[in-house]
Design a protein around this nucleic acid. Structure first.
Length: 613
DNA sequence: AAAAAAG
């Protein structure tokens, strides 16, 4: 079934795109004819040396589609790849030449080096650093449970060298000291490079950001895009990355800037709570990839500072959160009611560690003939995190907390570097606990949505640096934040959703490091007893007897169990209750997907079913 | 019921 890379790509190019659901309802305004977009790596070349560009001329979306659908076009998706992109931007500095492509860039400022120093390490250093930097037992990767479903799933790769990401990006990968792709990267990158939509479920701390950034950057470097209008005050990013919190957007931006360094791909971030004028100035200097939180983006769209009509890539990080009750209307507005390129004509990638079925169903509105990917963690789920639950009445929580913090301090072995993240339920509770900790001589700070953005960022910096090694946080810090050296996550108040718990404890045990998670449980948390006990059992944790008793007593109103504990979720399309609806044709390209008719995706390998069924 | 996200 799986053949070669090129075949897989070819299959995608020649048939299985779902175009059916799109052509009807979506009418897009024709943009005026524009000169062809010059990709960054070609900007200082003479026309004679350029590869034949697909003819562009009509509406940007329509003909770009034919551009990557056509097998002979030599487009960025197709199997036939001209060698542009492989040379001319390799040797470190990308040389001075004035770029013709973008207006007003003649005196373009020098790109700030996002890496501490620009040296690419020697091989000896690389070997030395390999374990320290990855910390992951790569030998165990063979055992990692992986589930894919959907049509013609491209096969995974084993090394970055197996994928042609381009010299500039490869150099940045080395600068980041990434040696091997993580499991989610091994699977997700080929899928994205093949132009497919993707719903990816992978554990916290498993390299998801790079998994969606690499294909986006690579695609923009190679892509042929219509020239974006200049001289207007509206900017036209090619890629949009949305995340649920400002700090996470900042973090993604910082990472993406490293990956995009010296590729000519410009990454800009926009989020609320910060002066908009500075962000506007950044935008006006040019943007290929926009990283944003929903509120600020809607603001920018309504002011017509940003247009989404040239978006080719849409990525939602923490996608399940983005589509939950609070966020969903805003996301729907951005994706469906503004001028966003319709699904099928853009590439959409959804990533999260958890993916409830109801959210998957909603998310499929944004996707076209997508591949579902679930990648487990090395070993069993959350193997690297030791989870403890203690029964603590609300009135005793503070003194219990103090005991834990004293013990941590006395332990000392982890030293100054050891950080403790304390989650509470409410903003008020966060302030009050921080105040109390400080009164009692514990160096604590707090982050939550009632603090100013400046205070939030200061708190996070102070925590990261070890200056205040205790951070009291609401769920604003539950997802995605990569904070090295968090050795202990304390759920002072348990969340009401097991998925939130999973994300919270995922702030420790990152990048192969071990971590400890302690939860305070009492009679107010009975609804969490069952899912918590199940989760702990699945991750080989010791479940206290009293919790088991609570679990068996509690009626079960929560969400159904995750697939065997190896994954955050499984493809809802494989759930029989969704297959009889007949709406399935929506997702599988209106019959072009013979491989799926049995209920399993064409790329699914039946021989391995016993591993997770 | 709370948290996040615009000002």
């Amino acid at each position: 079934m799986r053949t070669s890379w090129a075949d897989a790509v070819e299959n995608v190019a020649t048939g299985s795109f779902d175009n059916a659901g799109i052509s009807g309802g979506t009418e897009r305004q024709s943009a005026p004819t524009k000169p062809a977009y010059v990709p960054p790596h070609l900007r200082n070349r003479t026309p004679a040396s350029e590869p034949p560009a697909p003819s562009l001329g009509g509406p940007p979306s329509g003909n770009d589609r034919s551009g990557y659908g056509g097998p002979t076009s030599g487009s960025r998706w197709a199997g036939s790849r001209p060698d542009f992109g492989r040379q001319g931007y390799g040797g470190g500095g990308r040389g001075g030449g004035g770029w013709g492509g973008r207006g007003g860039w003649g005196g373009r400022d020098r790109e700030v080096n996002p890496f501490g120093n620009d040296d690419v390490e020697t091989d000896a250093e690389r070997v030395f650093n390999e374990q320290e930097n990855t910390g992951i037992n790569f030998d165990a990767y063979e055992d990692i449970p992986v589930e894919t479903s959907g049509d013609n799933v491209p096969p995974p790769v084993n090394t970055f060298a197996d994928i042609d990401l381009g010299d500039a990006l490869n150099l940045n990968i080395r600068r980041c000291k990434y040696v091997k792709p993580t499991p989610v990267q091994r699977h997700a990158i080929p899928i994205s490079l093949a132009g497919r939509d993707l719903m990816a479920c992978a554990q916290t701390g498993s390299g998801k950001t790079a998994a969606f950034c690499f294909p986006i950057i690579s695609g923009i470097m190679r892509g042929q895009f219509p020239q974006r209008p200049r001289g207007v005050r509206t900017v036209f990013p090619l890629a949009l990355i949305l995340s649920p919190t400002r700090e996470l957007s900042m973090q993604i931006h910082e990472e993406a800037r490293k990956f995009a360094y010296q590729t000519g791909v410009k990454v800009v971030v926009a989020y609320g709570g910060a002066p908009i004028n500075q962000q506007l100035r950044e935008l006006e200097r040019g943007v290929d990839i926009l990283v944003a939180t929903p509120g600020r983006l809607v603001d920018l769209l309504e002011r017509a500072k940003v247009s989404l009509q040239m978006i080719r890539y849409l990525a939602l990080d923490e996608a399940d959160r983005m589509l939950d009750m609070g966020f969903e209307p805003q996301i729907r507005k951005i994706v469906e009611q503004m001028d966003m390129t319709p699904r099928g004509e853009r590439q959409t990638m959804l990533f999260s560690a958890t993916f409830p079925k109801e959210i998957q169903r909603m998310a499929s509105d944004f996707l076209s003939n997508y591949i579902f990917l679930a990648v487990g963690r090395v070993g069993s789920s959350t193997d690297l995190i030791v989870q403890r639950v203690e029964f603590v009445h609300d009135s005793d929580k503070r003194s219990y907390l103090m005991d834990l913090l004293h013990a941590q301090k006395a332990n000392g072995a982890q030293g100054k570097q050891s950080l403790t993240l304390v989650f509470v339920e409410t903003k008020k509770g966060a302030d009050s606990l921080e105040h109390w900790l400080c009164l009692n001589g514990f160096p604590a700070t707090t982050i939550h949505g009632d603090r100013t953005q400046q205070e939030r960022e200061l708190a996070l910096r102070s925590f990261k640096s070890g200056n205040t090694p205790i951070l009291v946080a609401t769920d604003v810090a539950a997802r995605g934040l990569d904070i090295p050296h968090v050795s202990h996550v304390i759920n002072f108040d348990l969340p009401n959703d097991i998925d939130d718990y999973v994300h919270r404890i995922g702030r420790t045990g990152r990048a192969g490091k071990s971590g400890l998670a302690t939860a305070f449980f009492n009679e107010n948390n009975t609804s969490m007893a069952r899912p918590l006990a199940d989760l702990m059992k699945e991750s080989n944790q010791e479940v206290p007897d009293w919790l088991t008793r609570f679990a068996s007593r509690s009626s079960y109103g929560g969400k159904s169990r995750r697939g065997g504990g190896r994954f955050g979720a499984r493809d809802f399309r494989r759930d029989s209750s969704y297959n009889r609806s007949g709406g399935g044709g929506d997702y599988y390209g209106g019959g072009s997907s013979a491989g799926y008719s049995g209920g399993y995706g064409g790329g699914y390998n039946p021989g391995a079913a016993s591993a997770w069924d």
